[in-house]
Design a protein around this nucleic acid. Structure first.
Lengths: 136, 136
DNA sequence: ATCCTACGATGGACAGAATCCAAGTCAAGA
DNA sequence: TCTTGACTTGGATTCTGTCCATCGTAGGAT
């Protein structure tokens, strides 16, 4: 999605080579990279890029709603650029592979009022776990 | 749940004072402590207990299926002893408070076969997010 | 085209969470 | 009571992420 760069520019983002490279690395479907993986790939195109910049840029993309932060395993967070199509995640308990999936219905609707305890519930995040074909 | 100790002994656990104390700390409903919190509470009863032992014991309880590991915020994992009654979690996006909740239906059933990509799906973990009454 | 300046990048220090490891201790069976 | 292998210890280490003072530069102003 290269209109990402357009959208960011439209939001007043100062366009630097670092930000451009990070945005380009996060491109395509079923991308779920850790910050370190993003840094490694970005560094292939821009060797001097620092980890701090990658963390900063990812954080900004998340607050802008362009990227979703996913922590499926209590280890490093992963960054999912597929932010404009609601979806959930299916994770292999063995190898960690992640797939985007689309369950039926709206998970939020399954939480009855009497189970909300006065919370203003705004989001439901579902992680399906199991073994992928290669690991089964 | 003090039959926990019985069950563990039945499974061939060597019963040490450290393990006993950790199991006792994880007692009751709506308990969602971090490893460090478990360590702090355990240390009130057994001052010399080390963090490594707490981590080891928690890890064992998790593999035995007696405790569930919950990572709702990308920070420290939390340990939930309510492992024998299926439930999901409702988390305050502001203060981090966690409640056990029981959504209608079985979340697993909402993932159609054609969205499983050959995985053997065994578990669905739902995290509801929103603002708790005090933070709203 | 050049200058300015505020915003962004840098990298090294720091912090929090968890794991590892070699050495010492002890539960529980003989 | 003895023995032994499982358990505990605490300090070092790894991994993930944040902070901060300093330097660099994108892009508007001239």
């Amino acid at each position: 999605m290269s209109d990402l760069l357009e959208r960011l520019r439209g939001r007043g983002w100062r366009m630097t080579s670092q930000r451009r490279v990070v945005a380009e690395v996060l491109n395509g479907d079923h991308v779920h990279l850790t910050a370190d993986e993003v840094h490694a790939r970005a560094a292939r195109r821009l060797p001097e890029i620092s980890r701090a910049t990658v963390y900063n840029t990812l954080g900004e993309l998340v607050s802008l709603g362009e990227v979703i932060e996913v922590s499926t395993d209590g280890r490093a967070k992963r960054y999912d650029p597929n932010a404009h199509h609601p979806h959930q995640h299916l994770v292999c308990s063995n190898c960690g592979t992640i797939r985007d999936v689309h369950p039926r219905g709206n998970p939020l609707a399954d939480l009855p009022a009497e189970e909300r305890f006065g919370f203003t519930v705004s989001e439901a995040e579902v992680t399906y776990r199991g073994l992928c074909p290669s690991c089964a």
